[in-house]
Design a protein around this nucleic acid. Structure first.
Length: 278
DNA sequence: AAGACTTTCAACCGCCCGCAA
DNA sequence: GTTGCGGGCGGTTGAAAGTCT
């Protein structure tokens, strides 16, 4: 018994999305919300497979998406998480708010895997690998810039979402002040770099699986004035910022850990590095 | 200048899983 | 317990853009 295809595929558009299709999908989801992907194209009047709509929304149109400008810290985090989780891109992406599994997968395949290979042959140093970073696309640690919405001058025009290459890379060593605040507080021995913060986040005594399965992307929308128990881990301004007290509140709230359990933020890095010894 | 080659990444494909009937 | 459906995931493809010769 064959599986019913997700859609007939007959008479459906394929390939690159046009500006008009993007707008139609965006408007539909703004009104009706996402979900029911199979019916969505019919109801929205799109000649697309439901899966295609879902993919387009999740990987490109979603408003909270970050594209390009993958920072050094994110690089490092992806490598560490990949070491821990393997090719579980959605899980890795879940730890990088605003990043999609597809983007991380592509980024890994085109750049990070080579970088890691290079590092494994020549011992890792603090500086980036000798691999020509100049060839990387849109990668610098400056605040991510959303690509402007597609220009809708011609309704049927195909939107080329491909990022253009740049051969120069600019490093702007600035970090969100709040991150440094928190890092200094929790890890005074570090100099405040986010990478060091990651090196000082410990899950000892906590449920790592819970940690890994938390949907951080949702937390980006957390409003600090909101005191409910929705996990208030990350602020929208500083997506990688973990609020220790809030983590404790959440985890104790969901009974992941005992309320009186000692809560220490020490070193996730230690854990990730310890993986080598497993 | 132009053709060949390489790189990038959006989009597609097919499998898997959870859930409801 | 079984079946079918919807959604999600990871692997792969191929067109476009960049680089090299």
């Amino acid at each position: 018994m064959g599986r019913r295809p997700c859609c007939s595929k007959e008479g459906l558009n394929r390939g690159a999305w046009t500006a008009l299709e993007d707008r139609t999908l965006e408007e539909y989801i703004q009104i009706h919300g996402q979900g029911s992907w199979r019916n969505l194209p019919i109801e929205a009047g799109l000649k697309r497979c439901g899966k295609s709509c879902r993919l387009r929304w999740l990987n490109y149109l979603r408003p909270d998406i970050k594209r390009g400008n993958i920072s050094e810290e994110e690089d490092d985090l992806i490598i560490r998480l990949h070491k821990l989780l393997g090719n579980r891109w959605s899980l890795i992406a879940g730890r990088l708010p605003g990043r999609t599994d597809n983007e991380i997968k592509n980024y890994w395949n085109t750049y990070l895997s080579k970088k890691v290979q290079t590092h494994s042959t020549s011992k890792r140093t603090h500086k980036k690998s000798t691999l020509s970073k100049e060839k990387r696309i849109l990668i610098n640690p400056t605040p991510p810039v959303r690509l402007p919405p597609p220009v809708l001058t011609t309704e049927s025009r195909v939107v080329r979402t491909k990022a253009t290459r740049c051969t120069k890379v600019f490093f702007t060593p600035e970090e969100p002040a709040a991150v440094n605040e928190f890092v200094k507080e929790k890890a005074p021995e570090s100099n405040g770099l986010l990478s060091d913060f990651m090196a000082d986040l410990d899950v000892e005594g906590l449920c790592l699986s819970e940690f890994l399965h938390l949907d951080f992307s949702n937390q980006c929308r957390f409003d600090d004035n909101n005191n409910d128990l929705s996990p208030p881990l990350i602020s929208s301004d500083n997506p990688l910022l973990f609020h220790g007290e809030n983590i404790e509140q959440y985890w104790t709230g969901v009974n992941c850990i005992q309320r009186d359990a000692t809560f220490n933020l020490q070193s996730l890095d230690t854990f990730l590095n310890a993986e080598e010894d497993w």
